[in-house]
Amino acid sequence: MRDVFAMNSDQLLVFTIARIPRAIALVLTGAGLSVAGFIMQQLSQNKFVSPTTAGSLEAAKMGILFSILLIPQASMGIKSLAALLFTLAANLLFMLMVRRVRFRSSVFIPLVGIMFGNILAAVSTFFAFKHGIVQNVQEWMIGDFSSVLQGQYESIYLILPAVVLAYIYADQFTIVGMGASFAKNLGISYTAIVNLGLFAVSLTVSVSVVTAGAIPFLGLIVPNMVSMMMGDNLRRTLPMTALAGSIFLLFCDILGRTIIFPYEIPIGLMVGVIGGIIFLFLILRRNR
């Protein structure tokens, strides 16, 4: 703590234009993506659904790609908007599939989601290849907070209303997840709530991909681990889910920056590895 107060002006500058935005972005992204995963799991009533396993990340990537191809000098705002539109469309389509198709095993829903993501990626690749920017497109798929600077990250604050929305409507998301007739019976508008939930998810995913890049598994493992430890009482677990997501992401960021200091491992990779291992553990545990 004493170091913080003893900083010279250069350090202070680094602190305010780089460190503080980075910390805020990490906290918000961590909380936002975890809550987004939570909402998707409630809506689909499937523990394995998340932005990673429903094609949302690929849709956001596709949105950015098209905004760049159409408007070469696209600003962050335009990119975010394009990403938001594509993510929302993809999420709506995915939910439509989940609702219309009867699945014999709950495992198939994430499998279909991943296939869906692969399709979107294939379409993106088709255009990226034509324009020779395959490598650049890959770059958006790895979350990296090192380029988060003051003046370029502010759209991340949009996650805040999404999280608040999730908290207010948490119960209704669960009810809607039980099915349209179940929701109707309780006097809740199915379509409105589903769309609201998907909008919150799409907003979170798109701003986080535009600001930092894709962060896999976060929305998958954090809600699952919280529910394993604390059960499924939404009012209690939702704040914990947000908090745990932030802490997990901060932890991964610090780890990524220290392991090969002075270089840094992008957080998308760190989370991918740690999250992937945790997810494997979750599957194998269920297997037993």
């Binding site: 095993s105 991918g272 194998l284």
Partner: peptide, 12 residues
């Protein structure tokens, strides 16, 4: 099914 999920995660 667990084999599929495992392959999927390792693949990712």
């Amino acid at each position: 099914y667990h084999l599929l999920l495992l392959g999927l995660v390792l693949g990712a």
